[in-house]
Computed example of a mutant assay.
Amino acid sequence: MLLSFRVQNFRSVRDIQELTLLATPPDAGLPAPLLFGPALHVSPLAGVFGANAAGKSTVLRALDTLRALTAAGSDARDAVRRFEPFRLDPAARLLPTRFEAEVLAGGVRYVWGCAYKQGEISGEWLHAYARERRTIWYERDRGGVRTLPWARLDGLAAVVAGDPDVTLLALGADAEHPRLAPVAAAFAAIVPVRVAPGPRLVRDLEHLAAGWTDELTLLLARAGLGIAGVDTDGDGVRLVHEARTGPHPLGAYGESDGTIAWLDLLAALLPALDRGGVLLVDDLDAMLHPSLTAEALRLVGDPRLNPAQAQLVFTARAVPPTTAESQRWYAVKDDGATRLRREPGGPGLSPGELAHELWLAKRRPTV
């Protein structure tokens, strides 16, 4: 589970910003047992709201970049090469981007973080917390890597010393290291989901045929989309609509963008409810009716339907009334930089005021 996330000097974020999913009050979240000590209570939802260009999507992109930095394969190297510092301050371009996240894996709290510039990891650290005591598994800077002896990381540390554009945690995931791989798996469970218009909307539904479930059929049929059922005969999947002449199946090309967006979300959400993980959804309400947005949030927030304690981090234009205040974050711009706050920013020009300003500008004499 994701407990908290911090980011600095990334895209529209200049100063350190933190998003936490620890529930306040504690009884408002899902219980997450620890190996030692009382259980934590973690929120299954975190919504980021704000005006256009306030930096909402930047928060989700930062989380996805964090996932890539810890991933096996070439993802970590690709993320380091895509160095994206805050560009409105010349000094920030010379500083590294910094990410830090706290996750729960196997009943233990871990804090992993890294700092990087173009093609180079300048710092990395992994700490574990048990019985409220911190154990430093490793810390890395340009001078080398210092590791905990019993963690048996010397071999990986020697490899990373000559490989400055990959994280030690990503190497541990590649090597399936018995101590690092479970931590890397917690970050690998962060999954971005697209529900906005784009290439996925014109794809057929064959990619869902093998994993189609009765639950998916039920949620589609009860969503008020005119869908009566699903035809899975043959090679693909077609949604069945009721018509005067009887049931009529349609392929993806005949469905509305909103229907496909709801299907895309459910196709990722339902497996997460069974397996766990963290879903990242940008513009959750861009293509979905408010009732469907609320239904998705209820699915994640209901512990009976979410036994694996999946989490959903999303951005939206409007604040869903089903979210608690502790689950709401607001992105605001200050001197061109994004800040995360618990309360919304001050009101800007209303549409009527904006139109009035335009009317006044047109009446001003030109010289």
Rank of each mutant, 00 (worst) to 15 (best):
V230P: 02
P199H: 03
G276M: 05
M287Y: 07
V191R: 07
V230E: 04
V281R: 00
E242D: 12
G198N: 01
W212Q: 13
W262G: 04
A173S: 13
V278Q: 01
L284F: 07
D282M: 05
L208A: 10
L220I: 04
E206P: 00
G251I: 01
P247Q: 10
A175M: 12
D282L: 10
L169P: 13
R179D: 09
E215L: 13
G277F: 02
A223H: 00
V195L: 05
L169K: 05
A267M: 08
P182G: 01
G198E: 07
L216G: 03
L250K: 03
P247S: 11
T217W: 02
V193A: 07
H177R: 08
I190C: 08
L169N: 08
H248P: 00
D283S: 08
W262P: 05
F187P: 06
E242N: 05
D282F: 01
V230F: 03
P182H: 12
H241Y: 11
G246N: 06
H177W: 10
L169F: 01
A221C: 15
D264V: 04
V191G: 10
L239D: 04
D257T: 11
A189N: 02
L263N: 03
A175E: 14
A170C: 13
V191N: 02
D204I: 06
L225T: 02
D282C: 09
A272Y: 06
E215D: 15
H241W: 10
D285L: 07
A210D: 15
I190H: 01
L284I: 05
D257F: 01
V230T: 15
D264W: 06
A221R: 00
G226S: 13
D204F: 00
E242M: 11
L269C: 02
P192V: 08
L208Q: 12
V230M: 08
R222P: 00
T245D: 15
L169C: 04
V281K: 07
G258H: 01
D274A: 15
A252D: 06
L208G: 00
L273T: 05
A184H: 12
R203G: 09
D283Y: 07
M287P: 09
V278E: 08
A185H: 09
W212M: 15
G246C: 14
A272G: 08
P182D: 02
D274K: 11
R275S: 15
A210P: 00
D257S: 10
L279A: 08
V240H: 05
A170Y: 10
P182W: 03
P182N: 13
G254Q: 02
V237M: 03
H207A: 14
